[in-house]
Nucleic acid binder design. Sequence first.
DNA 1: CCAAAAGTGTTGGTCGTACACCCATGC
DNA 2: GCATGGGTGTACGACCAACACTTTTGG
Lengths: 236, 236
Amino acid sequence: MPAQLQADSLHVAVDLLILTVRGGQLKLFISRRPSPPYAGCWALPGRFVGMDESAETAANKLLEEMLPGNRAFLEQLYTFTDVNRDPRGRVISVAYLAVIPWGRLQAGNKQKQEIGHWFRIIKKERELRLTNDSGMELIPGDLAFDHGRIIDTGITRIRGKIDYTDIGFRFLENAHLFSLGELQTVYEAILDDKLDSSNFRRAILNRYEKTGRLNQTDQTEKQGRGRPAALYSIKL
Amino acid sequence: MPAQLQADSLHVAVDLLILTVRGGQLKLFISRRPSPPYAGCWALPGRFVGMDESAETAANKLLEEMLPGNRAFLEQLYTFTDVNRDPRGRVISVAYLAVIPWGRLQAGNKQKQEIGHWFRIIKKERELRLTNDSGMELIPGDLAFDHGRIIDTGITRIRGKIDYTDIGFRFLENAHLFSLGELQTVYEAILDDKLDSSNFRRAILNRYEKTGRLNQTDQTEKQGRGRPAALYSIKL
DNA sequence: CCAAAAGTGTTGGTCGTACACCCATGC
DNA sequence: GCATGGGTGTACGACCAACACTTTTGG
């Protein structure tokens, strides 16, 4: 990635908003930029779009670079085109939302985990904050480029879509074997709110079971202290 | 607009999905391409994004070129980035939805009306069709580039958003003085379905009147054969 | 008087919310 | 037994669809 771009031409990049749910919290993957501009600043993973690839392909390649071996759910978020959003020159960014189940992640990502970190996203009353496990706290203005704005757009989008799409299921480690409790944890993390388990159960079963997309399996979850949970399977 | 673009660089364009409601029908503005590629084909208005302008600015300029003197409501729709979507070279397109009230349109647009035309959009059971006042009929495959797909994305989007956003009001000639009947006509055109006026009335008033965004004025609509309608005003 | 558009009222069903209560397991 | 999480039942209110009915205009 050059520090100075061709002055007379327009460049296209993709940026990734990689989300997961861990320990009941919504987490975002960001890393420190190793080189100018904004060297040392926290930023979303980004990459230029090559001549022979679509933005979606570029986003998939970038994801593979950052978190090798993980296939995430990808969805185009928004395209940011402000003239001065990149000090190197004219760069527009097609931002993607990437959802990855935490349980599938851990495998061979030790290297990248050192330069990239997961921050908890908290948004209350229009104010967005990111916090580290180490207690480090960021506000949107601390991030490189317009990445604070991109994150804000993303969290708003996913909160808006979770009730009328199946995007919540994309956070599940195994969509073919999960308990409603796990799913509720995902919803609570995204909405940053407690839900009534009884009503949550009915809402999900109502929406998905009668159409046949969601089915109860004959298995139950052995682990845990309470009553074993019935396990379900969803067709995505 | 050159017939051949720089081979080694990536270009960014905007395309406009200009919508209006006329005579109870949802209409889309498309025009015949005057030059290659796809010379003579029907296409959405498009334009390259300049070095010193955002995509939104480019979209606004394009709108001013096509329909001078009209300020439309603009909303980014989706970004299309397939590698082979333009035979001239690598062009990605940021598509915008533009909503314009028919009543505000007629003024000084005689020139452009000759090369551009309004087609009625009909989408039934996943099948999209465009029909002219002259009875000409188009299917998505008849359009230049991937414009058929862009139109399909747009009509799906606006139908999905109409019940939970205020985008329907953007079709009104005067958002500060309109009858619920006019608004219902807009909704029916977009959804391509008849609505019960009694229920429509309650739904709109429930959603907007109690928050103070929508207010009944002391004026009534004199024209028409039936009972005069109360006129309302919405804050957009 | 009749047609047409505006506007009110009513009824039955569905769905979200709040909450009481029972079930199965670990400790 | 008790805490914990899974799961059922119920009751109330809001909302939506369907439809009967009234009001005010033009012809």
